[in-house]
Design a protein around this nucleic acid. Structure first.
Lengths: 200, 200
DNA sequence: CCTACCGATCGGTAGG
DNA sequence: CCTACCGATCGGTAGG
């Protein structure tokens, strides 16, 4: 029988991305060394290079795992026969939950994308564009008057993402506003603003 | 006569922050070296250390100059007898103009605040808090029903800043939506969402 | 001839 | 306002 991969190969690799995400989130990509990641995992640097070809590869993995999870959440929210506004509420709830549950990866995605080499960065950006397009399409379903004004619907989608993406810098889930109320507030703002944009 | 400062002291210092802001914006604080800044300005590293005690000091200067400019813009918008919603529109226009005009400093403020040493970071954060409070107070003036629901008005203010602060990652002033239209769209969203939040 | 892993150290460059 | 350097640490790789 041919020798196979270690039984715990995947778990070990997952542990490395997880620890790298935490360090990149607090110190930034250039501020956290491969030695730091090794120290945190109580493993050798060489073992990290057994799993990853380069430090940039780890960064890519931190980000792609996060945007793929967001992509899956968006697909969940869009499936089924709910009304478009309800789909947007579902999507927003799921995104906010991922932003909190994967706070490190989310912060790294927002701050350190520039350090991913061009080709792999393009792949991440493409997934992000798909997420934006899903939201933009939902907004047009909610407000059909914007069907022929793509610039306006895209702008509304970007303002929506602006509002939710950076909640991680200030939002406290234990404060006066629950995560659900926050998500609904963003959707309310977006939908109400959309109606005004459709008039003007 | 005692020896005085060089006649061009301030201009030289300004040139250093400007070039540092550009490098920090594209490569991040840890990705841009002091030698890089010196090269760009065609000066020596030592001259930089004549104007600044440390690399962190340059970073602080990049940020404090930007938030002070925003503070002055907010004061301008709040002065005079316009209605609160018009004041919010004026403030948003002025902020967006500064975000575009000082795009490097703005990006650095959003990405690299963690690298400023604690004491000076607290100073920057305090100015930012003042800006947030100005907007929150305006929102309560616009929608008095939120007077006793500070959590909600603060959340609305943070979503407002989320929407405008990160326009720099995607917005193109030469595209289908003018800066004025963009600013008005954010205000429309915020005000319309505010009305819904006041109901619920 | 493979995968899994270590202690030690490489050539270069960082902030000061 | 410069050249010449420093202690330390960087990402990545050697032999075994």
């Amino acid at each position: 029988m041919a020798r196979t991969q270690a039984a715990d190969y995947d778990e070990r690799k997952q542990a490395i991305v997880e620890q790298a995400a935490a360090l990149f989130a607090t110190r930034g990509f250039n501020g956290a060394s491969v030695a730091d990641i090794a120290d945190r995992g109580k493993i050798s640097k060489s073992l990290i290079y057994h799993y990853y070809e380069s430090k940039e590869d780890i960064l890519y993995d931190v980000m792609i795992s996060h945007v793929r999870a967001l992509e899956a959440a968006a697909a969940d929210a869009l499936a089924g026969g709910a009304k478009p506004e309800q789909k947007l509420r579902d999507l927003t709830q799921l995104f906010m939950a991922l932003y909190v549950g994967a706070a490190d990866r989310h912060k790294v995605l927002l701050n350190d994308l520039d350090y991913v080499p061009k080709a792999r960065r393009a792949e991440i950006v493409q997934v992000q564009r798909g997420l934006i397009e899903s939201v933009r399409a939902l907004l047009v379903e909610i407000e059909p008057a914007l069907k022929k004004r793509e610039g306006v619907s895209l702008t509304a989608a970007m303002l929506f993402f602006g509002a939710i993406n950076w909640t991680h810098t200030w939002y406290d889930a234990k404060g006066a506003v629950s995560p659900e109320a926050l998500a609904n507030m963003v959707v309310d703002m977006t939908v109400a603003g959309l109606a005004r944009a459709a008039e003007g």
